[in-house]
Every structure is written in structure tokens, then in C-alpha cells.
């Protein structure tokens, strides 16, 4: 039983960064913007979180730094694609390339240093409950943020007027603009929300998952988060499911390596990436369904004509 609980806990820890990054990107894409810079924003959040935590000795400051840096970094993308109407795919790629380079440069001095870890929640009695105690009341704070984000975003998108407006912008920015909605302003906010989430996801990696700084420590998780958004058909609750499936794959291959299964570790390590491809194939097969779900103006530049 203890074994099961500990495996479930590690799955939750592996799923959390994917979940947060994906939920942020979901909001961005719902507003009609495709930001391929998730990996770059995440790795910037990771280095900022580690650095701030290490320098101040407080992982909480690290957490805030990760969020702020993620949001600021996404602002760069927002200015380029929204104010200068650059190609979103290319700009997102360059955000990732710049993020990987910048984080590597900023983190040179942090390599090999022990980092600060965010403490797990502890509520007397509740956390000590058998089995469910640790799962429900004994995880790291970002886990609870991630769950709150899923339901918060779901409520925001489908139950509030602002959420409806955001979705309408994603489906047709020209109509939204004609109705007098400030398309660019909404998109700025959405992109920065996505950046803050990606930063937080990166912070989770360097403040909880493995409290240290390793270059490129995101290891493609930002890209997997992007795939999760497609997998979820742009629905928050499905992102939750998808992130935990991927968390399970990620942990499963690690456990398989630890148990010494006679398969080369490299093949097991490539499983999450192969699983991403398989999942994308399954979900995209139905062309009409995909077209119905995709925000209609996703990835298109918008220049308001007065």
C-alpha cells in the first residue's frame, strides 16, 4: 500500500509541471495565440526560481521569481506577435531558443549547488491519516495551485463573461474587434498568464521535483505541454487527465529503469516522447472533430484596421 501511495505521489509530482504549463498555454491558445515558447519560458522560470531561492535562502521567493520571470519573458513574445504582428510559430521558436541560451548563461554559476526545496504541506492529524492523508494533505504547495488552476480556468472560460469574450476572440478576432472588444489587450493578458504558468511550472522543476539547476532541465516538457493542449481539445479537465497519464508514463519508465528491466534505458527514456506522438496521432485522426475544437483564428496574426 505504501508503495502504491509513493508511486502515486511521484506521478503527481511529475504531472504537476506538465499540467501547469499546459493549462497556461490552453488559455493562450483559447485567445487565438499559439505560443511555441513554452519550453523557453519554463526553463527561464526554472533558473529564476532556483537562483532566487538559492540567493535568498527562501524557496517561496524563488516561487514568486519563477512566476514573474515567466510572465516577463512571455511579454517579449507578446510585443513581437501582438504589437508587431510577427509570425507566431517563428517567434515562439525564437523564444524557446533564447530562453534555453539565456537560462544556460544565467545558470552557469548555479550548476552543482544544492537548492532550496518548497516544504510539503503538513496539517496535523489530516496529513497523518492512512493512505489518503499524504495524497490529499501532504503534497507540495504547487500541486494544490495546479489543481486550483485547472478548476479556476475551467470556471473562468466557461462560466464568466470575460471567459466567453476570450473564447470569442480566439474563434474570430475580426468579429470580436468589430464588436468593440480590445482583441490585443485580451491577448496580451492571456499570453502573460501563459508565461506566468510556464514560469511556475519551471519553478516546480527546480524547487520541488529536483531542487537543483541543470542546464536544459525542462527536457522537452514544454513541448509535451503543448501537445497536451492539442490532446485535451482545448478543455481544462482533459488537460488534467492528460497530464497525469504523461506523469505516469514518465514515472513508469523511471521505475522500469530502476528495476533493471532488460531494455536499454535510452529506449525507456524515449517513451514519453514516443507516447506524445502516438497520442497526437490518435487525437488528430478525426479531421472534422479537430477542426471543430481548434480555436478558429489560432496562430493567425491580427492587425486591427480602424
Amino acid at each position: 500500500m505504501d508503495m502504491t501511495v509513493s508511486i502515486l505521489l511521484t506521478i503527481a509530482t511529475a504531472a504537476t509541471p506538465l499540467l501547469i504549463a499546459a493549462i497556461g498555454e490552453l488559455v493562450v491558445e483559447r485567445s487565438g495565440v499559439l505560443n511555441l515558447g513554452v519550453e523557453g519560458m519554463m526553463v527561464m522560470g526554472a533558473v529564476a526560481g532556483f537562483g532566487a531561492g538559492f540567493l535568498t535562502g527562501s524557496p517561496w521567493i524563488g516561487l514568486v521569481a519563477a512566476i514573474v520571470v515567466g510572465a516577463l519573458f512571455s511579454l517579449l513574445f507578446a510585443v513581437m506577435t501582438l504589437s508587431l504582428a510577427t509570425n507566431q510559430v517563428a517567434t515562439g521558436l525564437s523564444l524557446t531558443l533564447l530562453g534555453l541560451g539565456l537560462s544556460g548563461m544565467m545558470g552557469t554559476g548555479f550548476v552543482g549547488l544544492p537548492g532550496e526545496r518548497l516544504p510539503n504541506l503538513y496539517i496535523p492529524v489530516l496529513t497523518d491519516l492512512p493512505v489518503v492523508g499524504k495524497l490529499l494533505f501532504g503534497q507540495d504547495p504547487i500541486f494544490y495551485i495546479s489543481i486550483a488552476l485547472v478548476f479556476g480556468v475551467s470556471w473562468f472560460l466557461f462560466k464568466t463573461r470575460t471567459g466567453l469574450t476570450l473564447r470569442s476572440i480566439g474563434d474570430s478576432h475580426t468579429s470580436a474587434h468589430a464588436l468593440g472588444i480590445q482583441v490585443i489587450k485580451y491577448r496580451y493578458l492571456a499570453v502573460m498568464f501563459g508565461g506566468a504558468c510556464a514560469g511556475l511550472a519551471g519553478g516546480h522543476l527546480s524547487l520541488v521535483y529536483t531542487p537543483q539547476w541543470v542546464e536544459n532541465m525542462t527536457a522537452g516538457r514544454g513541448w509535451i505541454a503543448l501537445a497536451l493542449v492539442v490532446f485535451s481539445s482545448w478543455r481544462p479537465l482533459r488537460v488534467l487527465a492528460g497530464a497525469y497519464i504523461f506523469g505516469a508514463v514518465w514515472i513508469g519508465q523511471l521505475h522500469a529503469q530502476a528495476f533493471g528491466i532488460p531494455v536499454p534505458s535510452q529506449f525507456l527514456s524515449s517513451l514519453p516522447y514516443l507516447a506524445t506522438i502516438v497520442v497526437l496521432v490518435i487525437i488528430s485522426r478525426n479531421k472534422r472533430l479537430t477542426m471543430m475544437n481548434t480555436p478558429a483564428s489560432l496562430g493567425q496574426a491580427f492587425v486591427p484596421d480602424r
Binding site: T91, S94, L95, L97, L98, G99, L100, G101, M105
Partner: peptide
Amino acid sequence: KVARVFQGMLLF
């Protein structure tokens, strides 16, 4: 790594 930073900035 400064090379990567330069490359990223250049593309931007």
C-alpha cells in the same frame, strides 16, 4: 552559452 543568447536575439 552567450552564443545561444546572441542567436536567439538575432532571430527576434
